[in-house]
Amino acid sequence: MEIFDPADPVSGPDQTAEPELRSGPLWRHALWAVAVTAAGMGLGWLAALYRLGPDEYGIPSAAEGSPWALLAVCAAAGLTAAALLRGTAARIPLYAPTRVCGALVFAATRLALGFRPEPALLAAGAAAVVAAAAAWCAFGVVTHRRDATSA
C-alpha cells in the first residue's frame, strides 16, 4: 500500500482544487466556527510559549501577566471571521475557509500574546482579521460570479 495512492481522487494527481459548497444545519456551522477558532487560538497560545528568532528581533514569547483579555479579543475576532467565512461558504463555493480562518486566528493570537498591544492597537488587529476574512469572501464572490458568467 502506498502512502499516496495515485488511484485515490483525494491524494492522487486527479485532485482538483475546486471549492465545495458547505451547506448544512446552523448548529454545524456554529460548531465549525467554534472549533476552528479554538484550534487557531490553541496553536497560537502554544506557539507563544517559545521565542521566534534571536533576541534583537523576532516575535517574543508570551509576556508575563494575565492573557485572558487578549484571548477574549482574539476569540471574538476569530468567531466573527469564522462566521463570515462559513456563511459565505454555505452560499457559494469558497476555497479553503478553514485554513484561512485558522491562519488568521493563529497569527492574531500569537502576535497578541507576544507583543501585548495597547487596546487601540489590539482592536485594530482584530479589525484586520475580520477585514482579511471579508476580503477572502469578496474574492470568492467575485471569482464565483466570474465563473458563472463565463460558463
Score class of each variant (00 low, 15 high):
H144L: 04
A124K: 03
A96G: 03
Y95H: 12
G125F: 02
A131C: 06
M1V: 10
P6F: 04
W27H: 13
G78S: 09
F139Q: 00
V10I: 15
G114F: 06
L49W: 12
T16W: 02
P19K: 04
L79C: 02
G140D: 06
Y57V: 15
G114Q: 10
S23D: 15
A7K: 13
G40K: 02
A103N: 07
A90Q: 10
G125R: 02
L46T: 12
Y57D: 14
P93C: 10
V100W: 00
I3T: 13
E18P: 01
A128C: 09
D55S: 15
A138S: 11
L21K: 04
R99M: 12
L121S: 14
G24S: 03
M41I: 14
E118Q: 14
A96L: 14
V129K: 00
R146G: 05
E20C: 03
L46W: 10
P9H: 14
C74K: 02
A96C: 07
A127D: 07
Y95E: 05
L70T: 06
L85S: 06
L21N: 03
A120H: 05
W32Q: 04
W45Q: 12
V10N: 10
L52D: 12
E56M: 04
R116V: 07
A123Y: 01
M41F: 11
A48K: 12
I59F: 10
S150Y: 08
I59H: 00
T88A: 15
E18M: 10
E118K: 06
A112H: 02
V34R: 01
S23E: 15
Y57E: 11
A132C: 09
A127G: 15
G58A: 10
A90M: 04
W68V: 06
W136M: 09
A72Y: 08
I3R: 14
L43T: 08
D5V: 03
L85V: 03
R145I: 04
G24C: 03
A83T: 08
A62T: 14
P13R: 05
A151K: 07
P9D: 12
A30Q: 09
A83E: 08
Q15M: 14
A138M: 08
A76I: 08
F106G: 01
L122F: 05
D147Y: 11
P54E: 10
G44W: 05
A90W: 04
A112L: 08
T88H: 05
L31K: 02
M41V: 09
R86L: 02
R110L: 15
S150P: 01
V129D: 00
I92D: 06
F139M: 02
D14H: 12
P25E: 02
A38P: 03
F115S: 09
R51K: 03
G78I: 01
E2M: 10
G140K: 02
A47K: 01
S23I: 07
R51C: 01
A124I: 08
G44H: 03
C101E: 05
C137P: 05
A128T: 09
V141I: 15
S150D: 13
G40A: 07
L79T: 03
A124C: 05
V129E: 00
G65N: 13
G44M: 07
L43G: 04
A89E: 05
A124G: 11
A30R: 07
A7C: 02
A112S: 15
G24E: 05
D55F: 07
A123L: 15
E18Y: 01
G44P: 03
G42P: 06
V130A: 14
P9C: 12
V36I: 15
G87V: 04
G53E: 11
D5F: 00
C74S: 13
